[in-house]
């Protein structure tokens, strides 16, 4: 399956991927409304987050694991592995906010929704051909491609 591969050798830590993520997951899909209006009203937050240690940065989000620990831990059925697409999918309706997946994912890819008792997690931009973060990255710090299984 196609996945997003982050490259720490060239990620410059600009956080534009986060900006794109928030915009793509907003209602308006408008960068300014998403950040200046919706964020305050509905608690939009990026599903991809940039980690930095000294000069090294990398933008991380769900790696859509072959054997996802989050799915194993999810008590409500909100997280499932789609056997056809390979994506690790999240259904917000089902989530009860028990944070089991947040605890279980050893990659720290799951976050709490800023206002709801729900999680947020990368969905590889369901409905888009190219994930927003990959498209926004100015330095090819994120590559979306199929590299075989995991």
């Amino acid at each position: 399956m196609k996945k997003i591969y982050p490259n720490k050798a060239v990620c410059i830590g600009c956080h534009l991927c986060e900006v794109a993520c928030v915009t793509a997951h907003s209602k308006s899909k408008d960068i300014i409304l998403a950040h200046n209006v919706e964020k305050a009203q509905e608690g939009l937050a990026p599903r991809r987050n940039v980690a930095q240690e000294g000069p090294v940065c990398v933008a991380l989000s769900c790696r859509h694991c072959e054997e996802p620990m989050c799915v194993a831990a999810c008590i409500s059925g909100a997280l499932t592995k789609n056997p056809e697409t390979g994506r690790c999918e999240y259904n917000e309706e089902q989530c009860v906010g028990c944070w089991s997946c947040l605890m279980a994912c050893p990659f720290g890819s799951i976050r709490r929704h800023p206002v709801k008792e729900k999680i947020i997690k990368c969905d590889l931009c369901a409905g888009r051909d190219m994930p927003a973060c990959v498209e926004a990255c100015p330095n090819a710090g994120l590559i979306y491609e199929d590299r075989g299984k995991d």
Partner: peptide
């Protein structure tokens, strides 16, 4: 804690396999 504190090499193994950039 941060993933960037992982031992060298393990990050690429998990997050950026094969394609890991050789400059």
């Amino acid at each position: 804690p941060s993933i960037l504190q992982w031992p060298e090499g393990f990050f690429d193994e998990k997050f950026n396999p094969v394609g890991a950039q050789e400059i």
